[in-house]
Design a protein around this nucleic acid. Structure first.
Lengths: 348, 348
DNA sequence: TTGTAAGCGTTATCAT
DNA sequence: ATGATAACGCTTACAA
């Protein structure tokens, strides 16, 4: 019984690709030996190894990864889920993970949940179905969804968020400390009335950052709140609202919204930092190229990405889950912050 | 003969996931029927369909995608290769392709070649090994490498570049026309001495853009050249060199280098556009938030991404390769361009 | 409409 | 050190 057509209507001329069987025949060895040679298993004599390699080269053989996966139970594939691929914070992470994974012969399946909690769960599941593990930046998924993922029995690593309900491995930067130090800088400059630009509601990072800002109320600082978001447009949109508060400094959820705000302020003739100080969070590259350059919190992205891959690598190798890597973040003082107008005036 | 352990030392408690066989037994039907139900094949009676679905639900069954791939010869996976994931131009493309692919039940394997021609070939090959098709932004790969990819017999789509040597399907924006119109705008403003900031050497897009700029030499415009690159840092780095040319306008290879240049100029007290006009290319979102906002060339990224996926989709469905989609780009005039100093002075 | 069983291209077990 | 061969979980002719 001969079988289907194979060519799938696909595209090119493609004579069928050789199988391990054909290589074995050509080298006059068993398929097992060919498999061993390509697995780098030591237990093959030099002579046979050479013969196999020759035959494989002649035929243009390359192992069929899908068959390897099915038989071996390993895919050499990890999934990576982010809330927004267009955010420099995330693509920096992806880019670095991509490289480290490649060095370990892993490929990466990427998905973008577009900040949707529902998508986080679904995409996560389907990614994990195909891969050996999942790196997820899922700031909002609830315990049920997460538990379901874990139940697939494969390593799942949470990034930018600590989860305790189902206990999960995670890599995070200490957002609370970073934001606290940043706002302290504002207070030290003399600011007593600060507006916080909220990020995406209920995201873990947002909660940490807000907690840090809010903490200054106890120290006599007036802290107003505005719901903005995490994009350039979000920051731009709330400019009027910000001015209406009468504050002297704005701490934004992230660099994107801070940059959007600064641009909108410039258009209205509001000078930064003379009239109003503005800070961001993440230290994305663009923040160094705005005028004025943006005061922000640097998160060690390279280290975070490396820790992410190393941790995932460990989980894939059978390490027990639950590890937590915490990285420090720190304020980067640039031109977008200064003394509040009254103080500056007195100083003159 | 019982076989290995299965659990891979992986992580969780995971009772083994159910197979199609178990579902078939539970529903008291054959595996073929279960397969048909999950394939959505019409030829199953309503009664059996329901029984299968019930059993599957009870057992928590989900098809094993790797086995499906091996047996069916389709992976529902496409590879996507970009030269630099950190460039907004590319992540916009990826993000959109990700979504459209997901809607068609395809997943996307992403790789970043880091502008290395060698990596373009290798990564492309290994992506294509696992997937049904490859979307590649490979501005530099030579004919040999490309032919090798095509020989894998799977659809390959080139983006941002037209390739004729091996004939390839491609989606491009007409960079020449866009850049030409942009420079014409500069000339119309009165500029007669323009400096072009070269992008990555030998990239296809770079060649098209440069060809457009160079064309103005025939019209009596002095065009100087500086080798910069495609990043923010590249633009920043060449600021002094730019000033040394004495030109009145700069056309950069892309927005990133243009923004870097503008920032460096601002630091040196050079006013844009009063002292020097600067243009970019791509119309990345950040260009709208710099001060002044950047004059640039808009490339229809959404349309390009849609065309990219639709074309790939067609190839996957067996359409013949070789199609070429060309999209128009057009100048976007913002604040970073104005009349050259002399002309402006006369006007006053 | 439904079932049977032959692949799909490997890996890993067992025997030699 | 090498070979034979049963899985791996599914799809799809082909038979009924």
């Amino acid at each position: 019984v001969t079988r289907q057509r194979r060519d799938g209507g696909g595209s090119a001329e493609g004579r069928k690709r050789p199988t391990i069987r054909q290589v074995a025949d050509a080298a006059d060895v068993s398929v097992a030996t060919v498999s061993r040679v390509f697995a780098g298993s030591a237990a093959v004599s030099a002579g046979l190894t050479q013969r196999v390699l020759d035959a494989a080269g002649r035929l243009g053989y390359a192992p069929h990864v899908v068959a390897q996966s099915l038989a071996g139970g390993r895919n050499n594939l990890v999934g990576m889920l982010v809330p927004n691929l267009a955010d420099p914070h995330f693509y920096a992470l992806i880019k670095q993970v991509l490289h480290e994974a490649e060095r370990d012969s892993y490929q990466v399946l990427v998905a973008d949940s577009d900040e949707s909690p529902a998508a986080e769960g679904n995409l996560g599941t389907s990614l994990l179905h195909r891969s050996d593990g999942l790196i997820m930046c899922a700031p909002r998924s609830g315990p049920a969804a997460l538990r379901e993922l874990l139940d697939l029995g494969k390593p799942v690593l949470m990034v930018d968020r600590v989860v305790t309900d189902p206990v999960m491995s995670s890599v995070v930067v200490d957002a609370h400390a970073g934001m606290r130090d940043l706002v302290r800088h504002l207070v030290d400059l003399g600011h007593r009335h600060i507006t916080y630009l909220h990020g995406p509601a209920r995201s873990w990072q947002e909660q940490e950052r807000w907690r840090a800002v809010r903490g200054f109320r106890k120290r006599g600082v007036r802290v107003d709140e505005i719901n903005a978001g995490a994009t350039l447009e979000d920051g731009q949109r709330v400019a009027a609202e910000v001015l209406a508060t009468g504050c002297t400094a704005v701490a934004a959820h992230n660099d994107l919204s801070a940059i959007g705000l600064v641009a909108a302020l410039a258009e209205q003739g509001v000078r930064v930092p003379e009239d109003l100080s503005v800070t961001g969070y993440d230290d994305i590259p663009f923040g160094r190229y705005t005028s004025p350059p943006l005061t922000t919190v640097r998160v060690p992205e390279l280290e975070a990405a490396s820790a992410t891959w190393q941790t995932m690598r460990g989980l894939l190798d059978g390490h027990r889950p639950g590890a937590r890597v915490v990285l420090r973040s720190e304020p980067v003082l640039r031109g977008s912050t200064g003394s509040p107008p009254e103080v500056a005036a007195v100083a003159r």
